[in-house]
Write a protein that binds this DNA or RNA. Sequence first.
DNA 1: GCTTGCTCTGAAACGCGTTTCATCCTTTAT
DNA 2: ATAAAGGATGAAACGCGTTTCAGAGCAAGC
Lengths: 330, 330
Amino acid sequence: MANIRQIAKEAGVSVTTVSRVLNGHPYVREDKRQAVIAAMDQLQYTPNRNAVHLAKGRTFMVAVMLPFANHPYFSGLVDGIAYEALQHQYRIILCQTDYNISEEERVLQLLRDKLVDGVIICSRQSSWHDIEPYKAYGPVVACEYTDVPSFSSIYMDHYQTMKHALDVLMDYGHQRIGYCLGRPDSYNSDKRLLAYREALQQLGEPFRPEWGFHHCYNVEDGAEVIRTLLQMEERPTALLVAGDQSAAGMMLELRNHSEADIRSFSIIGFDNLPIAKVLGLTTFDLSSYDIGRKAFELFKYQLDHPDDPPEHHELPFRMIHRSSVYRVNA
Amino acid sequence: MANIRQIAKEAGVSVTTVSRVLNGHPYVREDKRQAVIAAMDQLQYTPNRNAVHLAKGRTFMVAVMLPFANHPYFSGLVDGIAYEALQHQYRIILCQTDYNISEEERVLQLLRDKLVDGVIICSRQSSWHDIEPYKAYGPVVACEYTDVPSFSSIYMDHYQTMKHALDVLMDYGHQRIGYCLGRPDSYNSDKRLLAYREALQQLGEPFRPEWGFHHCYNVEDGAEVIRTLLQMEERPTALLVAGDQSAAGMMLELRNHSEADIRSFSIIGFDNLPIAKVLGLTTFDLSSYDIGRKAFELFKYQLDHPDDPPEHHELPFRMIHRSSVYRVNA
DNA sequence: GCTTGCTCTGAAACGCGTTTCATCCTTTAT
DNA sequence: ATAAAGGATGAAACGCGTTTCAGAGCAAGC
């Protein structure tokens, strides 16, 4: 494989000139430029990307930290990041952490070790406190609310969405409300639970831990929740589900039971996945694709304007009313 | 940021020795090793990955070429690749091509330009003929059948799966059969269509282009197909659908219509996604996760044994019988 | 005629870790 | 005692493109 020095020799110019041609620098006489191009053509030269990265101190790559990609929320996020990255000639390194803290740290080390120009955190387990030092090596963007101001972020206020959903359910006369969340100890889950407990207080209802489910991500998780609930004597009349995927699993599992069972649970989902529409699931509109795009933009902006303060975008939420919420007979 | 030469000076040894410590080379006296480690600690040294990559001529990264990631088949594939990559200290660069040929070429160029040690092609538009030259730069693995022997590959025989599904439908008395596929011009679609046309011939049925649908990937695509079919005077009694995602969309859309409509179409899907189970969809078992893992293994093997001939794994198929295929009244 | 200011060019240094090769020092085997 | 075989170590070359800086050539401005 040819290198830049061979091209220089072949074209009868210095390596500097070859480099200039490569980088579209002006100040190269046309005949020399042509000679260089001819030499590159003849020797089938292409620059070694590692050498470019080393010399430039930049790699045009971002690390994308997420627990797993086979979930519509995250794959949408990745899609959005990838789309925007493509526009800016960036590549993404997909780093699945499975919420493993040391794996997450290894992702941040890619930034410190100059393999990537920045990190986009889709979801994480580590504390912001542990992540913060890596900010010194390049932009770190979060796709969730952070109470640490040194990162740019884009997020939804899940205290508010939960509160809104609870208000809607109460309007429909529900008092016995259960919930399904993902990780129990995440920031968003905490906020949702806060709204939940406040609503219970408002209703004068006790907190019943058996009506709360965690680690719900997939269709199958939702189906399992319904099977569990159907075994109970005392059941909630409504369920707030932090993901359409599992909400869909619930609705589908209900349909495997009696007609009465189907209408015995009102369900509100989250994400507005295509399946929500087909199922008539009331949910919140949330385009993880758009969040991904925005996250990349925030990264790029921070990279190009390192001295500007980080930006924080709170996304407005919007509920999509369909037919999965029933009125409770008074 | 410190570099290896500063560490050498600080520890009172040569850079070679530092490099040896870094790479766990023997032939370093214990006291020197300790001195080096102390120096690295003190200066908070970590190696610049780009320099390592340049010097080693290896990057411990693979490019994963796929059209898009927000589809369960592909995200499962990515998950599998990522899992196996992690075991081997490899990173993956996710390259979404949207089936754009020049974008696909750009992915292969990453291999030529030494940014990745290999490429795993999940699905592609380019001809194998155009891809083949890149083999010279490193292992290229395909997650589909290739008629070009120079790549390792792992695939299912979709002529056989389609044939099997058709046989089952015919056993159940179906004669009027439609299909839903993804891209119309892909190798797999061609093979499926071949089996399809042979079955029609066997049945003495004409080929009705209006019963064939393409570009079906998502729930919404499937729902749309059903709406279209319900408008027709003459309808098929069974549908072969090349993905559970769209098959699910069909079943769900049918449920939005009359009870009679639901049973008016027998449906066979593909992939055995979680939703297929909940819906009682008859489908083919196919773990894209396992394919992904195997694909990475094939890549790694080719990398470590460049002179061994490429391997080709044909996966056995297995139909999972559930309740979406009805018997036709004779 | 002379200064100022571009345009154009290349030598050399730089970014940084790895590898080759020569050398010196110990052991172990004979 | 002595040759053969390892162990240990560092200088220098290498992988390869970019950038700095000095300098040459040439045109516009006064």
